[in-house]
Computed example of a mutant assay.
Amino acid sequence: MVAIPGGTFNMGSPKNEPNRSHHESPQHTVTVQPFFMSKYPITQAQWRFVAQLPQINREISSEPSRFKGDTLPVEQVSWYNAVEFCHRLSKYTGRPYTLPTEAEWEYACRAGTTTPFYFGKTITGDLANYDATSNYLNEPKGQYKERTNPVGQFPPNAFGLYDMHGNVWEWCLDDWHNNYKGAPTDGSAWLDNNDNLYQKQGSAVLRGGSWDDLPEGCRSASRLSLNRAVRDLILYSFGFRVVCAFGRILQ
């Protein structure tokens, strides 16, 4: 876990950002409290350990991933399965682990930057795992690896977080909203009505892009579109990381 300092940032993309989506508007100021975030996406070794802990609300497979390897990110996990992981880990450690809120995720990804990527204005295959046969601006094209990469093999951001761009999409806690009109400005999860996570319906939010995505999908502000982010969907490009934020209590 990495300590993420609190701070204020502009969430969403500016109107002049190339390949932006209307889902990333309006750009708005958010103040985030300090929290801890996992340095890497949850790996298959970490998932396997937690999967053998006592069940809280639902069964989870110890080996869900298509691409096998202890240091590869776990994938083919639904939002509900990721929530179960957090609850089991919380019970085991006595600490409040959850999925990151969408604001926490973007704040942590940006790490003080305002460019499309925490590397700068563009991205290359030497910096992240994505479909680098397509380019974002005029950078050289690279390789499409067609699979996940062991975590931690690309440069981290200023907070010391790895793989925030590419490798696997990462589930966030929030309900899906088509834009940021009415979004919280305190970094909290944007949840509609029911706070019981296991009774949630509809779609959640995925962030960060994956090994199977074009570079624009890996931008700091990018959000996976509504029809692909239903909570029970399982794909080999969907993973997650966790946060520990004391004072947050979720059912």
Score class of each variant (00 low, 15 high):
Leu191Glu: 12
Leu233Phe: 15
His28Leu: 08
Ser134Ala: 09
Glu59Val: 03
Leu206Ile: 05
Met11Gln: 07
Thr113Lys: 08
Gln44Met: 14
Asp213Pro: 01
Gln143Glu: 15
Pro18Met: 01
His165Ile: 13
Arg207Lys: 13
Trp190Asn: 10
Ala189Leu: 04
Thr8Arg: 07
Ser21Thr: 03
Ala45Trp: 00
Trp211Asn: 14
Lys39Asp: 03
Leu235Arg: 06
Tyr118Gly: 01
Pro73Trp: 08
Gln27Gly: 14
Val32Glu: 00
Pro26Cys: 13
Val2Glu: 09
Gln76Cys: 09
Gln46Ser: 08
Tyr180Lys: 02
Leu72Gly: 01
Asn193Asp: 13
Gly208His: 05
Ala229Gln: 04
Gln153His: 13
Trp105His: 09
Ala3Phe: 10
Asn135Phe: 07
Ile123Phe: 01
Ala3Trp: 08
Gly94Lys: 04
Phe9Trp: 14
Leu226Phe: 15
Leu250Ala: 11
Asn227Pro: 09
His28Lys: 15
Gln76Gly: 00
Thr133Pro: 02
Gln199Cys: 15
Pro96Trp: 06
Phe36Ile: 06
Lys181Ile: 13
Asn57Phe: 05
Glu216Pro: 05
Pro5His: 11
Val30Met: 15
Arg58Cys: 05
Gly217Phe: 14
Ser62Met: 11
Glu216Phe: 14
Ala229Ile: 07
Arg95Leu: 10
Gly112His: 10
Asp212Arg: 02
Tyr80Pro: 05
Thr101His: 05
Val30Cys: 15
Val50Asp: 02
Met11Glu: 00
Ala158Glu: 11
Asp175Gln: 09
Lys121His: 13
Ala245Trp: 06
Asp131Ser: 02
Pro156Leu: 07
Ser222Glu: 12
Glu139Tyr: 06
Phe49Lys: 13
Ser38Met: 14
Trp176Thr: 05
Gly6Ile: 14
Arg228Tyr: 13
Glu102Cys: 08
Gln33Cys: 01
Ser134Lys: 05
Asn179Gln: 00
His177Lys: 10
Gly12Val: 03
Gln33Ser: 11
Ser188Arg: 11
Ser13Asn: 03
Val50Gln: 02
Ile42Gly: 08
Trp169Ala: 06
Thr29Ser: 15
Asn16Phe: 13
Pro140Glu: 04
Phe9Ile: 00
Gly152Lys: 09
Thr148Tyr: 06
Phe35Ser: 12
Asn193Val: 06
Cys86Trp: 06
Asn81Ala: 15
Ser222Tyr: 11
Tyr136Lys: 02
Arg223Ala: 12
Asn19Val: 00
Val32Asp: 00
Val230Met: 10
His22Cys: 14
Ser225Val: 12
Thr98Tyr: 08
Gly239Lys: 10
Tyr97Lys: 01
Lys200Asp: 12
Thr98Ile: 05
Arg228Asn: 08
Gly69Met: 06
Ala3Thr: 08
Glu17Pro: 00
Gly166Cys: 07
Arg110Cys: 12
His23Lys: 11
Trp79Asp: 05
Lys68Trp: 09
Glu59Pro: 00
Ser13Pro: 04
Tyr118Asn: 02
Trp79Asn: 03
Ala108Trp: 14
Leu137Tyr: 05
Ser65Gln: 06
